[in-house]
Amino acid sequence: MATVAVATPYRAPRTERAKSIRRHVLIYLGLLPFLGLAVFPIFWMLVTALKQEPDLYRMDVVPFWFHLPPTWKNFDFLFHRTSYGDWIVNTMAIAFWVSAITLLTAVPAGYALARLRLPFAENLGIGIFMTYLVPGIILFLPLARVVSTLELQDSWWSLVAVYPTITIPFCTWLLMGFFKTVPFEIEEAAMVDGCGQLGALLRVVLPVSWPGLITAVIFSFTLSMQDFLYALAFVSVSDQKPVPLGVATELIRGDVYFWGSLMAGALLVGVPVAIVYNLFLDKFISGITGAAIK
């Protein structure tokens, strides 16, 4: 709220430069608590990941820094003594296929619900959303049956089959909102030019909707990294696990936590995803804006 005062020019105007500096200082001051909140745990995880084990259990010295030389041992451990390499590959492959399935199903569904004035469209849309109210803690049992019927037990493909149940409803809603923002005129123009309805969708509507599509992909990507229970129930073989499951099941051994490797394992997937996220953030924002406001 500090910026409030800034936005309201109360005092006599100073030079532009001074004003800009003052504005920046206040914005940074306002951001500081947020940055601290968001970044401190990450910083702490990084320090933990690079610390030697005995260095973790000392309260007599400043814990924020190293008192024994930093070590790559925890990262080394991840790659050489666990299947972490496989976990990353699996996670990426799962995210890729889940995104693909989600787009292939949610794009047509969102378009149909938004544009084709179908009877029951509203109820169908709401029905799809309502699947979120079904608790996963029970759902995983019947799904186990499905997974084994498909002969996907203990393979990461089982998660490719299951995660779209989480991503499709969300992305359908998102895209439904988004398609509404595309002006009818451009679609009609395309149809006049001889495209069918499908052609109009593919050639005109999709190209202008790509912020929405990117948003859907980013969502699919993040949502498929948040699950733990399905992965636990369907995948028990080490080299088939995705990162969250692998890290949480193989780096805690009974009453010993391998803190350093745990943190290293989390950061190695979380931070790159954050960077990618940020690259697309503007598109993402316009994606959501389109989806929800119009």
């Binding site: 997974v147 636990l232 129930a233 028990s236 080490s238 805690i252």
Partner: peptide
């Protein structure tokens, strides 16, 4: 395959269901 002891029951429930 090794999994933490606390998570075994969920896995058994899933195997049994499957």
């Amino acid at each position: 395959d090794h999994i933490p002891h606390l998570e075994l029951p969920a896995r058994y429930a899933a195997e049994f269901a499957a």
